[in-house]
Design a protein around this nucleic acid. Structure first.
Length: 332
DNA sequence: GTGAGTCCCGGGTTTACATCA
DNA sequence: CATGATGTAAACCCGGGACTC
């Protein structure tokens, strides 16, 4: 995984995983209209009241993604190595003939036309039955390949033309995406009109853009989890080593007669909870051995309401964090 | 309440294009 | 310069959820 700027603004330069995982997503903005349309920038249409067919159920998805978007400043397309070549690419989307645009907008400036491939679907068995027809229409209505290419080809549905968006178009789309990662039909139409694209193109672009954002976020999450795993593995290794050392010490008490007991572990034999109390400060002035004859470092002392003391294998110490006071151990 | 129709989305895939060795 | 490998973006397909009628 590289740290290059991928144009999605999702750098993978992770730091120490302990504390720097992205904060929880900010509270999602209240659903305003269908797709956050009230945040529509530029000169796009103001958000209309929910038109027919405009749904609220996508808000959940929007919120899911909003975190990623909010944390993924988007680089200008120029910085994206993948768009470097755009300037050299023949801009096939360049102004469809004005008549084509006029026809496009005039014919489609209607909520009923939402550029969905399903718009022309016949209702027999399902969806997109007539996508090809729709596509043929699309091919002829934009891309600047209108007339002539279709005339000699004839079969526009056979070969789908894949055409790069221009640098400017991509920039506008990116800017819009920064504001809201989904579009309602009005916004889509307005944006398509502004960019001389078909609404379907705008729709597809947003879908792909959301997918790319999600993919990048997944990569970031994966990287973070790997680092967490590495950290925990290292910690585990360290603790295991410590355990082995302490076990070795236990077998040769004389070796550490003068050691300050770092900790006294206290375990309740009933619930097996363990409490840690630092005794290092007093250890220097008292015997290093408790009543059991074991060094304090290896002693487990019981709360005074317990009758016996138990030796404890130290690995438990790493489990500890126990609440200091509870009903069962009132004095803890 | 239910089914059909519609719209939109996410996930996955295909395809066209650009870049590079 | 030609060519194949590779990466990426655009377009597509499919299934499914939500909504309206």
């Amino acid at each position: 995984m590289s740290e290059k700027d991928d144009g999605l603004g999702l750098s993978l330069s992770l730091k120490c995983p302990e504390n720097d995982y992205p904060p929880p997503p900010p509270p999602p903005p209240p659903p305003t209209g269908a797709s956050g349309s009230s945040r529509l920038p530029l000169n796009l249409l103001p958000s209309p009241p929910l038109p027919f067919g405009q749904r609220h159920h996508h808000v959940a998805n929007h919120q899911r993604l909003s975190f990623m978007i909010n944390h993924a400043p988007i680089s200008p397309p120029d910085l994206n190595p993948d768009t470097r070549s755009y300037a050299r690419v023949i801009d096939v989307n360049r102004p469809p003939s004005t008549s084509a645009v006029a026809a496009l907008t005039a014919e489609r400036d209607d909520d009923a036309f939402v550029s969905s491939p399903n718009s022309t679907v016949s209702s027999v068995s399902g969806k997109r039955v007539e996508r090809e027809d729709n596509e043929a229409e699309r091919e002829s209505s934009s891309h600047g390949i209108s007339g002539e290419e279709e005339d000699d080809g004839g079969d526009a549905s056979a070969a789908r033309k894949k055409l790069r968006l221009s640098k400017d178009q991509a920039a506008v789309l990116e800017e819009t995406f920064k504001e809201h990662n989904t579009l309602n039909p009005k916004q889509k139409l307005a944006l398509a009109k502004q960019l001389d694209l078909r609404p379907r193109q705008v729709e597809v672009w947003f879908q792909n853009r959301r997918a790319r954002t999600k993919l990048k976020q997944t990569e970031v999450d994966c990287e973070y989890l790997k680092r967490c795993c590495d950290t925990l593995t290292e910690e585990n290794r360290r603790l295991q080593k410590e355990v082995n050392e302490l076990r070795a010490l236990k077998l040769s008490p004389q070796f550490y007669m003068n050691m300050n007991p770092p900790t006294t572990l206290t375990m309740c034999p009933q619930c097996e909870r363990v409490a840690v109390s630092s005794s290092s400060s007093s250890a220097a002035t008292s015997s290093t051995h408790g009543p059991t004859g074991l060094p304090k470092a290896l002693q487990v002392s019981m709360p005074s309401n317990h009758q016996k003391q138990t030796n404890l294998f130290l690995p438990r110490a790493s489990i500890i964090p126990h609440r200091p006071v509870d009903a069962h151990h009132p004095r803890w």
